[in-house]
Amino acid sequence: MTIWTELLGSQTRYLGEKYRTRVIEAGDGEPLLLLHGVGGHAEAYARNVTRLGEHCRAMAIDLLWHGFSGKPGFTHDAVGTYVDQVLDLLDSEGIERAHVEGESLGGWVALTLALEHPGRVGKLVLNTTAGIKWRPGSVHERPAEGREALRARSLAAIENPVPETVRARLEWLMARPDRVTGELVEVRRRIYAEPATNAALRTVFENSFGFGSGPDRKIAEERLAEVSVPTLVLWSDHNPGSGPDVGRRIAELVPGAAFHCVADAAHWPQWEQPEEHDRVVLDFLGRAE
Rank of each mutant, 00 (worst) to 15 (best):
V162L: 08
V187S: 06
I61A: 06
H238V: 05
A149F: 14
S138R: 12
R176M: 07
G16I: 02
S10A: 15
G107K: 12
I132E: 00
V204W: 01
E6V: 03
E159N: 11
D84Y: 05
G27F: 07
P161F: 03
D178W: 14
V185C: 10
N160Y: 09
V125F: 03
L90N: 00
D237N: 08
V254K: 01
E275F: 12
A257L: 06
S138A: 15
E171L: 08
A257D: 05
V38M: 08
R188Y: 13
V139A: 07
R188A: 03
T181C: 11
E17F: 05
V185N: 02
L285Q: 06
V281E: 08
H99P: 00
P163T: 07
P255V: 11
G73N: 10
P244K: 08
Q270H: 15
L63K: 00
L32A: 02
T181S: 15
D77C: 12
E183A: 13
V280H: 04
A263Q: 15
L285H: 04
T165G: 02
R22T: 02
G27W: 08
P163D: 10
L105E: 01
D216M: 14
T5N: 15
E186K: 12
T129S: 15
G241M: 09
T81W: 13
M174N: 10
R151Y: 11
R120W: 12
R249T: 03
A263R: 14
L8I: 09
H76R: 14
G131N: 13
H41E: 09
A265M: 12
D245F: 05
D245R: 08
R176G: 02
R179A: 09
G241H: 09
E164S: 14
H140G: 06
G212Q: 12
D245T: 06
G80N: 11
M174L: 12
L34E: 01
A58D: 04
N239K: 06
L35P: 01
L64N: 02
E171S: 09
N160Q: 12
A251G: 08
E148K: 15
R217L: 11
V233Q: 03
L285I: 04
E183N: 08
A42C: 15
E25N: 13
K218F: 15
E17V: 09
G67H: 09
T21G: 05
E194D: 14
V280S: 05
T12K: 11
N198Y: 09
D77S: 13
L111D: 01
A220G: 15
R120E: 14
A78G: 12
G107H: 11
R249Q: 10
A114W: 01
L111H: 03
R188G: 00
T81P: 07
G37T: 01
L201Y: 04
P31F: 07
A265G: 14
D216R: 15
I61W: 04
H267R: 13
L155T: 00
